[in-house]
Design a protein around this nucleic acid. Structure first.
Length: 223
DNA sequence: ATCCGGGGAT
DNA sequence: ATCCCAGGAT
């Protein structure tokens, strides 16, 4: 029965929102920047990504997709070095930029008019773009209603005994999308709240369950 | 199962 | 000086 899971997810959302308020969170100033961040943040912390983005901004190459594309790969690697896996990510970012260039010429409103089920597989077909990166681009840069799942999401739901630890990406995504109506602001805010809870309370080591907004939903946490 | 690399915590 | 953290490809 999944009416129970639906109620639980909505209550968790409400609890986080009540404690933390609206996040107003967007992982970048522009859609282009969101795409850059989506690649750079693969398997790395946001603090590192921020440094890399700043370096790109200061170098003036973040102004347009063309500027980024015309940057030699060696220069790109060096600029994004703080984000880690920098040679790999320079290639992956280039792949994504090339895709965006010929899919829409960096006019993201064109992509916003396309079907999620059409665009998502195409994005996943780009080498270096996996499900999380694709969903992050689709939700935050394009504005299509796909739920972004990450290690934080997995950890929080697993610790609340809602999913197995090794649940595949698409199944975890379905946990949300099977139950939540397609709603970009809702998906945006839900993900943002999970990220904030994971960072401040549901940390990988030394979690602070006692005063976590999701404490009431813990096994034996009352309610 | 292993590789790719950095920053922060311990 | 290590250990730990976080996606995707092969």
């Amino acid at each position: 029965m999944r009416g129970k899971r639906e109620r639980l997810l909505r209550e968790m959302y409400a609890a986080m929102h009540a404690r933390l308020g609206p996040s107003g969170w967007w992982p970048g100033e522009t859609p282009l920047e969101v795409c850059v961040g989506a690649v750079l943040t693969q398997n790395t912390a946001w603090t590192n990504v921020t440094k890399a983005i700043l370096r790109l901004r200061d170098a003036g190459v973040l102004a347009s997709g063309q500027a980024l594309l015309s940057l030699p790969e060696a220069d790109m690697s060096e600029l994004i070095r703080p984000a880690g896996f920098f040679r790999l990510k320079a290639v992956r970012l280039r792949n994504l930029l090339r895709f965006l260039d010929d899919a829409c010429g960096f006019d993201f409103s064109v992509l916003a008019g396309q079907e999620l089920d059409y665009l998502r597989p195409r994005l996943l077909n780009v080498s270096g773009i996996g499900p999380e990166t694709a969903d992050s681009v689709l939700l935050y840069a394009v504005g299509l209603p796909t739920f972004v799942v990450d290690a934080y999401t997995r950890r929080i739901l697993h610790r609340h005994a809602m999913v197995p630890d090794d649940i595949p990406y698409h199944e975890l995504r379905d946990v949300f999308m099977d139950v939540l109506e397609p709603d970009v602001p809702l998906y945006n805010e839900f993900h943002a709240l999970l990220v904030r809870v994971a960072a401040q309370w549901c940390r990988a080591r030394a979690p602070r369950c006692a005063d976590c907004p999701l404490c009431p939903f813990l096994d034996g946490g009352g309610a």
